[in-house]
Nucleic acid binder design. Sequence first.
DNA 1: TAGGTTTTCCAAAACGTTTCGGATTTCATT
DNA 2: AATGAAATCCGAAACGTTTTGGAAAACCTA
Lengths: 341, 341
Amino acid sequence: MSTIKDIAKAAGVSITTVSRALNGYSDVSIKTKQRIHDIAKELEYSPNALARSLVMKKTKTIGLLVSGLNRSGSKDHIVMDVLTGIHEYCGEYEYDIVLFSTSTSRQGEKTYTQLCRERRVDGVIVQGIKKDDPYLIEILNSDIPCVLVDVPAEGEKVGFVTTDNVEGAMKAIDHLVSLGHDKIAMVNGHDQAFVSQERLKGFKLGLENLEKTFHPRLVVNGDYDEAISEEKAFQLLQHHPEITAVFCASDLMAFGVMRAARRHGLRVPEDLSIVGYDDIALASYVSPPLTTIAQDTFEMGYAAARLLVGILEETEVERICMVDNELKIRETTIKQAKIKK
Amino acid sequence: MSTIKDIAKAAGVSITTVSRALNGYSDVSIKTKQRIHDIAKELEYSPNALARSLVMKKTKTIGLLVSGLNRSGSKDHIVMDVLTGIHEYCGEYEYDIVLFSTSTSRQGEKTYTQLCRERRVDGVIVQGIKKDDPYLIEILNSDIPCVLVDVPAEGEKVGFVTTDNVEGAMKAIDHLVSLGHDKIAMVNGHDQAFVSQERLKGFKLGLENLEKTFHPRLVVNGDYDEAISEEKAFQLLQHHPEITAVFCASDLMAFGVMRAARRHGLRVPEDLSIVGYDDIALASYVSPPLTTIAQDTFEMGYAAARLLVGILEETEVERICMVDNELKIRETTIKQAKIKK
DNA sequence: TAGGTTTTCCAAAACGTTTCGGATTTCATT
DNA sequence: AATGAAATCCGAAACGTTTTGGAAAACCTA
């Protein structure tokens, strides 16, 4: 593999000149610049990013830390979409992405900070981490610039991107109430997720705004798991037959609720309206297709990358980025006609 | 950020000794080795992978080149699963992954080889590339070790991992024929995919083995697209009402066929049996749940990484890796009872 | 032509490691 | 006490860049 030195020798100039020529500095004559470029092409030269990074103390690399990447895999493609968004931005701005994960069984048991520092990533994007993950503290304590997705944290060099989950939940509640629903339950995720809290807040606020009363009894946690949600919803429906609609903090959990309803002999949406959250691909394929709050996950990734690069290059002062969400009305919600029970 | 030099100074030894102590060489006494380790911890030292790679001429990094990562996104999670598998293996063997893509709109218009050479990745895993992609030639011509998924190519430093698509297709046909189906159509992908050819081969072979005749007329290409498949299948069913079953080269296309059947007023599976390929998450959620050939995509990724690392470290001589597939019988296939038409 | 500017170039240091070849010390053996 | 072997250490070069601070050459201007 040819180096800058080879070019220098071939062109009969110094290493410095080659470097400056290749990097487009103005203090080298057009003639030699051209000659150097020609020779570089001839020699199939590609610059060694390692050497460059070593002296520049910048790698043009960002780390992507996604929590819990493992075989069991997710039925949703949220992680993938966010990644795609990040990748898109990075492609445009010449950053590279290196993948980390908290779940790897590295024998070395390296900490997150070590991982990042060894590879000398310029910054990190963190996705899918829970509020109580020990890594999170480490991340925030380290001086590595970072942006979190869906975890609120601000600082000199840290920001986050999220959607307005309060508003999202309120959109769902507005929709249900406008259809005449009154006894609305909620299947939330778990307390370790920021978005859960926000969605619950929106649920509460939405009810209160419309002068409905909020019943804590009608809220259960499904842990973002389909099976658990099914069970929890099954019990909930058993104890509270007055429920006519349920708002779920994720689509997957909504599927669980649909199953539970079916076990109770309830038809969706005639007997029970359901709205999910996320709008994963599955949502529009199941039957009936799921009404849900759609998040632009690609955009979230794109925005996260933009924010991080902004922090790195000190062109951005804002530390929070909100991306839109949208209510997608499909077929699991319908006008509440007859009074139940 | 502290360096090996700082440690040397603090410990009163040479740089060499620190390096060798930290790397566990035997020519440094236990006592100083211990002291050096203590100081390293104290100083929160992390080795600079850039510097190390520069001198060692190895980065312990593999590039992941996935074709067509973009917003439109895939409804399947195959890419993600493969990535997860790769990531799992790399986590175990201390390799890092850097993400490339052929679809990025880099203004620099760097070629694939340049990308890899600049970052000095040790090898590359390529996924989702079509047979006629210009990148493919470049990849194979370059001297960068690489393993392809689902594209056959062998060489000194190149291998591939795939499933037995001929066998997979045959399993599908066996299943359909054993249910009494006779007039079986196929919706294939496109000619630029290796797997399409193989699945077609299996389709043909499966029929011939069971002494059924193969009708080229009953094969159409759906381009791995749901809408296109729907259209093609619609026409096919129109011209050939004798068809009682269709084998699809992907689940997504199978969904298209299901839609087409519905438009013709055909019930699935009573009037038309359908089998897909891939077993994406959607497959078990649609109704009726799709019978399909399942591929262990996680394992494919894992195997790809293992193969590549094997090539890199010269511990592996095999250049092909086959992973299993499996027929998942669900509810879109049923015994062919009455004679149609 | 003398002085000053501008253009074009370069030597050397720096980035943080690994490794080669040898030097020094310690220890056991006779 | 002398010898040889083993254990422990180190200096310096190398990896391929960027950058600093000038030097040399070319060009103007009066």
